[in-house]
């Protein structure tokens, strides 16, 4: 474990807590894409399949349980909670996210480190996570006024993988043979997808204005 990875995990945890805070306290998921939440639930379900077969540390297992539990409970809240589900703007959140799942699965069947069931699904989860934010970014473009919590959620979610990139550089420099191109490229693409969001987020923060993405 290194400081970059810890910062990444804490940033990721913070993003999840911000979203749960928003949904649980003000019982609203306005501006949040259910499609992105469903994709993230699939990402964690396919990435943490080894949670019962391989143990690294209490921390590792605990964080996996937190991410699995939070992503599925957010999907449950947005789909079935009587108050929250009413605040979900269904007609704006129209990204065909299933069109992201299949290409990622096909790509994982083609490009992976080992052709085993767990490895292919793990690779699939990396590819899917890289594009999972797209429905949310599209929804943000359509939602005129983005509330602070939603903006912070997306900002933190985008930042965590950026810290992971620093972690990969650090591990590449300090651990011999630590080379994982698939993880690195997927992580880089994922972070780059946030580039314009980060730009407008900083602009709004600098000018102390409401966050608005250009249509």
């Amino acid at each position: 474990m290194n400081i970059f990875r810890l910062a990444g995990d804490m940033t990721h945890l913070a993003s999840v807590l911000v979203l749960l805070l928003k949904i649980h306290t003000i019982k609203s998921c306005a501006g949040v894409s259910l499609k992105t939440q469903e994709l993230y639930a699939i990402v964690f379900a396919t990435r943490y399949l080894d949670i019962f077969t391989s143990f690294y540390s209490i921390y590792n297992t605990l964080m996996k349980l937190i991410f699995l539990g939070s992503s599925f409970s957010i999907v449950w809240y947005m789909r079935y909670h009587k108050t929250v589900r009413r605040t979900y703007d269904r007609e704006q959140d129209t990204f065909r996210h299933w069109f992201l799942v299949l290409p990622c699965l096909l790509l994982a069947l083609l490009i992976h480190e080992k052709f085993t069931f767990l490895e292919v699904l793990w690779t699939f989860s990396l590819y899917l996570e890289a594009v999972a934010i797209l429905p949310q970014l599209v929804l943000l473009q359509r939602t005129r006024n983005i509330d602070n919590l939603t903006g912070q959620y997306v900002f933190l979610l985008g930042g965590y993988r950026g810290f992971y990139i620093l972690n990969w550089i650090y591990r590449y420099l300090t651990e011999p043979h630590f080379v994982h191109w698939i993880t690195w490229i997927a992580g880089l693409v994922q972070t780059l997808l946030y580039a314009d969001f980060f730009y407008y987020y900083f602009q709004s923060w600098k000018n102390n204005k409401k966050l608005q993405l250009p249509a």
């Binding site: 391989s54 590792n60 996996k64 080992k114 793990w122 992971y164 043979h177 630590f178 080379v179 994982h180």
Partner: peptide, 10 residues
């Protein structure tokens, strides 16, 4: 070994 290593990340 190295591939196993990658799995220690979240």
């Amino acid at each position: 070994k190295t591939t196993k290593e990658a799995k220690d990340e979240l």
